[in-house]
Design a binder for these strands. Structure first.
Length: 504
RNA sequence: GCCCCCAUCGUCUAGCGGUCCAGGACGCCGCCCUUUCAAGGCGGUAGCACGGGUUCGAACCCCGUUGGGGGCACCA
């Protein structure tokens, strides 16, 4: 419970990620995790993962498990923390209460902290009485309470909170991303470390654990910047009583903004990390985009791998500007990574998404795998996220193809469609060789040359008949994979949908 | 209200006093390719918030203004 010199090797960097397991995982939180991880890896340092579950009312075990899963999915491995262990455990604050109780007692004993009996209502009343804005907060009125006064409050049944005595000096630090930041002496009131009921608060346990775990560099959101003076003061007190080895460095990352000009809130659907996973963003695509929220690898480049990020990451080059989360750009980045995937890798990753819809089994049958591998290169380049495969290649794995109503309206509504579909069926029924080139030749001869149709008019209805959509992988290859029987069946089925025609 | 942060194309950014009549990416718009849709190729659109300094010289340094944002709990 004292500063462990071995925990902070001179010059070595130790960063941490310390979310609280309360509900949905926010993309900004994962961005913070990524930057801490990249900073540790780049400097050859350590990355600690700690769970801040001091709020029993809001924390959940499910959320805790989910957090681990998200980190692992992104590829952010930790050197110390849950399920990994380490010399500074436990790594869940709910299991560290004795530690906080002990540190609080020592702070009180050393005079850095004191018992405070004022209720929030009393503080407000005093501010008002003095003609001041209640927003100024606590007025440090209990600093000089005598033992008699304290006894009197206790006799009333009041339980005191523990407050830190703030120093009467300026509090300043050299922020890793912003340079010097300074708060004037007296501008930050004495704050609460421990509640009246004995439960320690976040502003207390967070620095205590950072100190005990040898954290040297704290990278966190700019929204926490105003709380830094308090942490600094606490750190100085902890250093004085031998709990901390000194102050860590702080770096305040730019906020992640939403649609308007506001911080992306947990309420905003865009902020939910899970939706990107579920849509089939790649971890490497997500890492790439998240990294771009405040950092850039080079002047003329924005596609890179996690490894490349680690090699190049320099926290001093992180931008201080707030960054808007741009789904369009995230998609573009992801699409680039998706297309770069080797076919086998792509197939592996896409299978769970197809399986989820019952289109293939997981693992796929040999036949399903064969078809997937054949169509993959053609599908990959027209996909943005893995779940796109469901709509794009699903028609190859089911006989219950739903024809998109809009597609039908566009391609299967006129008399031309009937003529085209009939001609296509005729051309394909006795085709000697069922290969993409043969199919291409037959259809072009029949539809383009024979009927005199423009290619786009000739193949539109056929595509919709085969795939149910106006967008699909290349037609001939798709038909080849589908097989003659199913292809003819779909042409016939579509033929029956054409209104007001003989076949209907 | 108080404290703090931020300020280059619509968006994310490069730029760390001259090499910038500002570069890249996303988006958007054309053109090419073409069996749809994409992808790809080519081209285009659009920005240093304003005002003072400092300097031979400022997007870059300083001050102010304006604008935007964040924080002000016995939540985290």
């Amino acid at each position: 419970m004292t500063a462990d010199p071995a925990a902070t090797p001179s010059g070595g960097v130790t960063t941490r990620f310390c979310p609280s397991p309360t509900g949905l995982v926010h993309v900004g939180v994962m961005r913070a995790a990524l930057f801490n991880w990249a900073h540790a890896r780049h400097t050859g340092g350590r990355f600690v993962f700690r769970i801040e579950d001091t709020d029993a009312a809001r924390d959940s075990e499910e959320s805790y498990r989910h957090l681990l899963d998200c980190l692992r999915w992104l590829g952010l491995d930790w050197d110390e923390g849950p399920e990994v262990g380490g010399p500074h455990g436990p790594y869940r604050q709910s299991e560290r209460h004795e530690i906080y109780r002990d540190v609080a007692a020592r702070l009180l004993e050393a005079g850095h902290a004191y018992e405070s009996f004022s209720t929030p209502e009393e503080v407000t009343a005093r501010r008002l009485a003095a003609g001041q804005d209640p927003k100024l907060g606590y007025d440090n009125a209990d600093r000089l309470l005598t033992e008699e006064q304290k006894a009197a409050f206790r006799a009333e049944g009041r339980a005191p909170v523990l407050r830190l005595r703030m120093p009467d000096t300026d509090l300043a630090w050299d922020d890793l991303v912003r340079g010097e930041v300074r708060f004037a002496a007296g501008s930050v009131p004495d704050f609460v470390l421990v509640r009246g009921n004995g439960v320690p608060l976040y502003p207390f346990v967070n620095p205590v654990d950072d100190a005990l775990m040898g954290i040297t560099d704290v990278l966190r959101g700019e929204d926490l910047l105003p709380s830094t003076p308090r942490q600094l003061a606490l750190y100085d007190a902890l250093t004085d009583i031998g709990v901390a080895p000194g102050r860590p460095r702080f770096g305040h990352l730019p906020l992640v903004m939403g649609e308007g000009n506001k911080k992306l809130s947990k309420r905003d659907p865009q902020s939910n990390f899970d939706v990107y996973r579920e849509r089939g963003f790649l971890p490497e695509g997500m890492v790439n985009y998240l990294a771009l929220l405040g950092w850039s690898i080079a002047e003329d480049r924005d596609i890179f791998s996690p490894e490349e990020m680690v090699a190049a990451f320099d926290v001093r080059r992180v931008s201080p500007n707030p960054a808007r989360f741009d789904v369009k750009k995230a998609e573009a980045i992801n699409a680039t990574h998706l297309r770069a995937l080797p076919v086998e890798d792509f197939v592996e990753r896409v299978v769970p998404f197809l399986a989820r819809e019952g289109l293939v089994s997981d693992p796929p049958t040999d036949e399903q795998r064969r078809v997937l591998e054949a169509i993959a290169p053609l599908a990959q380049e027209r996909m943005i996220v893995l779940s796109d495969a469901v709509g794009l290649v699903g028609f190859l794995f089911t006989d219950e193809v739903e024809i998109d109503p809009a597609a039908a309206e566009k391609q299967l509504s006129g008399p031309d469609a009937a003529e085209v579909l009939d001609a296509a069926s005729a051309a394909l029924t006795d085709l000697p060789e069922w290969t993409a080139p043969a199919i291409e030749t037959a259809l072009k001869e029949s539809l383009v040359d024979g009927l005199g149709r423009k290619p786009r008019q000739a193949f539109g209805p056929v595509r919709v008949a085969i795939s149910g959509r106006t967008v699909s992988p290349p037609l001939y290859e798709s038909m080849e994979q589908l097989g003659r029987e199913r292809t003819l069946a779909r042409l016939a089925a579509a033929r029956r949908l054409v209104p007001g025609s003989a076949g209907g």
